[in-house]
Design a protein around this nucleic acid. Structure first.
Lengths: 126, 126
DNA sequence: AAACGATGTGATATTTTCTTACATGATTTA
DNA sequence: TAAATCATGTAAGAAAATATCACATCGTTT
């Protein structure tokens, strides 16, 4: 699935194409960028270049707007999406190594006798 | 699968993008068009607009060229591909209708008694 | 040697896109 | 309700991308 992701995030579309695909004006698209809702690439000549993901997001933004949600609301939505994505990433980032498992088990054995100092688990030791 | 086909044949890429995607010069791309190997769309301002299918074909053309095949050869290859595609299309064009089936069965019954005049099957009636 | 094939390059025109600034009508806010 | 803010339109002028056409080049065919 990595291949497809790459394709969808390739910045290959000029703003004129995106206008047609989304039925948004250049003004609108640039404004949404200004608001941080999309961040199109720039080519060597400073022209905005959009990916299919950008187009999808623009269509989403259109939907939110017609639903009556304003910029601030949409920003918040994407902000939260990003938070969740980052959390997920962090969760998956470093699966426990064998060493981690041994250390955890060792800690548990220590704690079996009684809760003396309780330094807590520390498996992400740099 | 119709959805994907449509996407791949949507003319959304300007020549600059296609140059980067294929590592071909504008001159080369225009020349291949001149030779009829690709037929990019034009936007309202007469700019060439390419589809993903066009990009695929250009990459194919590159390969053929590095294999030593010249324009004439590549043209012939695509000509034959088109022929085959058209034949296939024609084959699938008109699946037999119920009426055809009845007529065929009727013919077979006629032929049971013996092969008198043998006009052959005739289901593609006009 | 002449012709041809595939591509490079330059000139000039047109189109697209950029940024910046001001205008506008609809909401919010004070 | 007057003033501010929001989302978008519009205009100006500059820069970039692309168009066509013509001529150059270099290797391969004839």
């Amino acid at each position: 699935m990595k291949e497809k992701e790459l394709r969808r995030s390739l910045a290959v579309l000029p703003i004129g194409t995106v206008m047609k695909l989304t039925n948004l004006s250049a003004r609108q698209i640039r404004y949404y960028e200004e608001q941080g809702l999309i961040i199109p690439d720039r080519n060597a000549g400073n022209r905005r270049m959009f990916s299919l993901n950008d187009v999808d997001r623009l269509l989403e933004i259109k939907d939110y707007l017609t639903e009556g949600i304003n910029m601030a609301g949409i920003k918040e939505i994407y902000e939260q999406q990003k938070q969740r994505a980052e959390q997920k990433e962090a969760d998956l980032a470093r699966p426990l190594t064998d060493n981690d498992v041994r250390r955890i088990l060792h800690d548990e054995f220590l704690n079996l006798g009684g809760l003396e100092s309780k330094p807590g688990p520390h498996y992400p030791t740099h």
